[in-house]
């Protein structure tokens, strides 16, 4: 017999259509009860899940995704993941094992973790470990080992940082960031707009956008009216370490380089300031130069038309550091 459909949606077979009508009601009641029980179970499971989850886990996840968004949005150059996320640990050359998840101090020792030896009732110490600079660094436009003298019998990272900081301020670099590298530190200056010869532009030096007419003259006006000259930008990274290093084959995008300034520390932690410099340290300047075509996005020049010494001379740092 072909089954018929009753108004409740149940298929009524010959077995269900027996004279006793409550045969059909029983499964309906049972199903309703089962539905209610399932709803309660779901509610209970949801409440227990929300209680067991950590309060900061969602915030951390959103922060991580927010950090990845700018790098993903940047499509000028294919930069490595290590270059895009400098705050994350990167594998060091020569290390057979994968790197620890936390950054390292300039001495190469792993940083103390909060759960290592916490004192009862004491607040956890503030984390003063520099974020890592991408290592080995992305290929720079120009590189130079600067013969810098620390001017002290027992030079520390603090002495050298003080000398460099004074020179940077003298030449107009007031914003910088500190990173850790194997065996030392890295100082990243803010990206500046320069002329093609490496001289910083007098107006709109720190602006990523092309400035309007810099000075009112007929020649400048005609040049600005009929041409759209490309923009040149520069970021200098000073690396202080006694460990030899090379560079990756990947260039970086301007947005990644700009992100370095935000990711690094504004000052050096005290323990690093007092740490003595390695006896055979090298002070290396990595120059990242970018060119921006009219209507295009900036891309790294590799190599630069100028050498690193010319860059340092034109920006005034060579003289400010009293280099010969």
């Amino acid at each position: 017999m072909r089954p018929s459909i009753n108004p409740s949606g149940w298929s009524a077979t010959a077995h269900h259509l027996c004279p006793r009508n409550n045969r059909l009601r029983m499964p309906l009641r049972l199903k309703t009860r089962l539905h209610i029980a399932a709803l309660f179970l779901l509610l209970f499971a949801q409440v227990s899940c929300s209680k067991s989850s950590r309060p900061g886990s969602q915030t951390q996840a959103s922060n991580q995704s927010a950090q990845k968004e700018p790098a993903a949005a940047d499509s000028t150059k294919q930069a490595p993941d290590s270059a895009r996320k400098p705050a994350e640990p990167t594998p060091y050359p020569g290390s057979a094992e994968p790197p620890p998840p936390a950054p390292v101090s300039p001495s190469g020792e792993p940083p103390p973790t909060n759960g290592a030896a916490p004192k009862a009732g004491a607040a956890p110490p503030p984390q003063e470990v520099l974020p890592r600079f991408p290592w080995p660094p992305p290929i720079p436009s120009a590189r130079l080992s600067v013969p810098l003298n620390a001017n002290s019998n027992n030079p520390t990272f603090g002495n050298l940082s003080f000398i460099l900081d004074a020179a940077l301020r003298k030449t107009g670099y007031f914003e910088k960031s500190y990173f850790s590298v194997p065996g030392g530190i890295a100082i990243v200056t803010k990206m500046e707009r320069i002329y093609q010869d490496g001289t910083p532009v007098p107006v709109g030096r720190w602006s990523v956008e092309q400035p309007t007419l810099p000075r009112l003259s007929l020649s400048e006006y005609l040049r600005a009216l009929f041409t759209a000259s490309p923009g040149y930008y520069r970021m200098i990274v000073f690396v202080v370490t006694d460990k030899p290093f090379g560079a990756t084959n990947e260039t970086i995008s301007a947005s990644t380089a700009n992100q370095w300034l935000a990711d690094g520390f504004n000052i050096l932690p005290e323990d690093i300031l007092l740490k003595p410099l390695p006896p055979h340290f090298a002070f290396t300047a990595l120059v990242y130069e970018f060119r921006r075509e009219p209507g295009g996005k900036p891309y790294e020049l590799e190599p630069s038309d100028l050498d690193a010494r010319t860059h340092l001379t034109r920006c005034g740092l060579w003289a400010a550091l009293h280099l010969q």
């Binding site: 009929f226 041409t227 759209a228 075509e293 009219p294 209507g295």
Partner: peptide
């Protein structure tokens, strides 16, 4: 004429 010169000198870039 101004627009032609601007176009020849790529004043508008790709636009």
């Amino acid at each position: 004429v101004i627009l032609v010169i601007q176009s020849l000198l790529s004043a508008y870039g790709t636009l």
